[in-house]
Simulated scan of single mutants.
Amino acid sequence: MSRQKKTWNIDGIIRNIYLHEIIFLGLIGLCFIGDLIGYLSERAVLFYWLTMTPIFFISSVISEKAAALQSGKDTPHFLKYESIFWLSAFMAVMLIMLLWHASIIETEATGLIIHIILAHTMLLTGTLLGIRFYLIGFFLFLTAGLTIAVEGEVGRSVFIVIPVIILGLYYEKYFLFPSIRNKIEQAYRDDEIYEDEE
């Protein structure tokens, strides 16, 4: 009984019609926090970006699973490609950390390199998951460029994060919102089927 309830809760989360918006805003928020941590502590940001690597991977898998449930179509070989993207990113990050540990590169440069690796991997993920992941990748690239160009200035990335969020939500409103009604109706039908099975 508890196992069935747990499965239903996971299904309920994945079937949430606003899940893509939640993931998009959550990842943008995590990127923004990483940018702020980089201003506060060069060492802390290294470990922050290291922990973000699996979080970005898991978020992309959840997003694809939700899209597959909503459309009824699986993306062939998605998990294989995503695993290659993020495993290679993780290995690159670990090698960069070893270079830092060996004092070959400085702490600040290490954080920026990891930041750029994650931006590149997120952009690659956009080829499979669409415009919002492209936007997150571009946001990471822009914040890395801004950090390099304007060293020591806190809060400048706010001027980038707001347009990225607006563009990501604008895309949903004008290109995908006509399908929201269908998603709601499908969610209600799925709930009714689930209740009938019980």
Rank of each mutant, 00 (worst) to 15 (best):
I104W: 15
W100Q: 14
I116L: 08
G130C: 10
L99P: 02
W86I: 02
G111K: 07
E108A: 15
I116E: 06
E82Y: 01
I114Q: 03
A68S: 15
F85L: 14
W100H: 15
I116R: 03
A102N: 10
I113H: 04
D74L: 04
A67E: 06
L123H: 11
K73R: 14
I116M: 09
E82A: 15
G130H: 06
W86L: 04
I105P: 02
I104G: 06
I117W: 03
S71G: 04
L95T: 00
H115G: 03
H77C: 05
Q70P: 00
F85P: 02
G126Q: 07
F90A: 00
S83A: 13
K80W: 11
A68G: 09
F90M: 00
Q70W: 07
L123G: 13
M91N: 00
M94T: 06
T127H: 09
T110L: 06
L135K: 02
M122H: 03
S83P: 00
L98H: 05
A109P: 01
T121C: 09
L129S: 14
K73I: 15
K73D: 11
E82L: 05
L98D: 08
R132Q: 13
M94Q: 09
H101E: 14
Q70C: 01
L123P: 01
Y134P: 05
I131V: 13
G111F: 09
E106S: 13
A119W: 08
E108C: 03
S88M: 11
I117F: 13
L99Q: 08
Y134T: 12
G72S: 12
L128D: 09
T107Y: 07
L87S: 13
A89D: 00
I84D: 01
M94V: 13
L135T: 14
L118S: 02
A68M: 07
I105A: 07
I105W: 09
I113W: 09
A92N: 01
G72Q: 11
A66G: 06
L123W: 11
G111M: 06
A102T: 10
W100P: 08
I131S: 12
L98I: 07
L135A: 12
T125G: 10
L69E: 09
S103R: 11
Q70V: 01
K73N: 12
S88R: 00
L118H: 02
P76G: 06
E106R: 14
H115P: 03
A92W: 00
F90N: 01
I131Y: 14
I96C: 11
Y134W: 15
L118D: 04
E106T: 15
T127R: 12
